[in-house]
Amino acid sequence: MELSDREHALIAALCDGLPLDSRPYRALGERVGMGEAEVLACLEAMARDGIIRRLGVIVRHHELGYRANAMVVWDIPDAEVGAVGRLLGNAPEVTLCYRRPRRPPDWTYNLFTMVHGRDRESVAAAIEALADREGLAHHPRQVLFSLRRFKQCGARYGRRREAAE
């Protein structure tokens, strides 16, 4: 799917967030030389085509009291990883579920899930329960808790010139 330069400019402008203004789409359009109706049509098309996955309030877990954030990585046989990925992707505890490549010998895990919770103990227990419930306890896994957040912001897909702050 090829996006036009105008769409790229709109995406770059949207990376900063929708203005908190009565007419936010008009304000966004003013930054990229688009009218309000064109911005709305463009965003609708991107949502319909699955380019925008979700439009709305983007919360910060840590500030909402979810202090424990675990990246749980699993080593699942390649033939099973699709089925297991769909299972974990639908599990209520899991907020992200991605298949990524192995990089042996440094890294042998191919399925990545995120689990958030109030504290480390409850997250560890939830992961244990998840593995048992889904019949995955026999697969090698590791839990990587976050110790420190150095940076968290939205992705900037715009070209550097447009994304410059």
Binding site: L55, I58, G154
Partner: peptide
């Protein structure tokens, strides 16, 4: 800091590229 913004989450790899 409870919200980072009102905005869009783009589908990975449909706009641009990314990696972990």
């Amino acid at each position: 800091g409870h919200i980072s913004r009102v905005g869009a989450v783009f589908t990975p790899h449909k706009v641009g590229a990314s990696t972990l």
